[in-house]
């Protein structure tokens, strides 16, 4: 499903360039749960952003669903985001002005899903995550763990093939973190969603099928 062929990423710096990623070759099959680990500055977030089509690689080839995507137009890329990709962020990145319900609903709006379908899908997720009572609250009225639950709900509401999670538990304490990780595992097992997460914690990485380790931009 995801194939990286000798991907590299570099930025101009002074007269030369600085490599953040080098020679990354990676194959992720549908239904896999992959963890990316590495020390700060090892390039794991950049790798996730490239995988999530938020950044373009400088070198190499990226096949997403067997299609080369490293030079995709913005429209096409947005299309992939709408249909196949979900994001979970460390800082949740919920929209402050929208309620829980509306935050979860937004991807469906962009996807152009009909109103009744949106209602049932959001209701289903609220129910599944035990958040029905909180649906009219704003993000600032929720705890961190609850916010991240909404973040996960928003990431899967449009039935994506893959979820990219950038240190999804980085801002949470361990109890909440476990809850989120268990949720990921469940999604992966029951809903067959492919999950790629970046994490600092060995424990969290353990929830996945395999772990990719990065060091100074190289795969270890």
């Amino acid at each position: 499903m995801i194939q990286l062929q000798t991907i590299a990423k570099h930025y101009p710096a002074g007269f030369g360039k600085v490599y953040v990623l080098r020679n990354i070759t990676l194959d992720v099959k549908e239904g896999e749960f992959v963890s990316i680990m590495g020390p700060s500055g090892s390039g794991k977030s950049t790798l996730l952003h490239i995988l999530g089509l938020l950044e373009e690689p400088s070198e190499g080839e990226y096949l997403f669903l067997d299609e080369p995507v490293q030079k995709l137009s913005e429209k096409k890329r947005t299309d992939l985001h709408r249909h196949h990709i979900g994001f979970v962020f460390q800082a949740y990145h919920l929209i402050d002005e929208l309620t829980v319900y509306e935050n979860i609903e937004t991807p469906l709006l962009y996807k152009g899903v009909s109103s009744s379908e949106r209602k049932s899908r959001v209701a289903e997720l609220l129910d599944r995550f035990n958040m029905v009572a909180k649906k009219d609250l704003f993000p600032s009225q929720l705890s961190g763990g609850q916010q991240q639950l909404v973040g996960v709900a928003r990431a899967i509401v449009h039935n994506p093939k893959v979820i990219f999670a950038d240190e999804p538990t980085g801002n949470l304490h361990s109890e909440q973190a476990d809850e989120i990780m268990e949720l990921f595992q469940k999604l992966n097992k029951e809903d067959k969603v492919t999950i790629i997460q970046v994490t600092h914690s060995e424990k969290n990485a353990g929830y996945g099928h395999r772990t990719i380790r990065l060091k100074d931009g190289w795969m270890a």
Partner: peptide, 16 residues
């Protein structure tokens, strides 16, 4: 800016 980033990541185009 943050809102713009999030919206783009979850599927908003510039015209949206």
């Amino acid at each position: 800016a943050n809102e713009v980033g999030v919206r783009k990541a979850i599927g908003a185009t510039s015209s949206n």
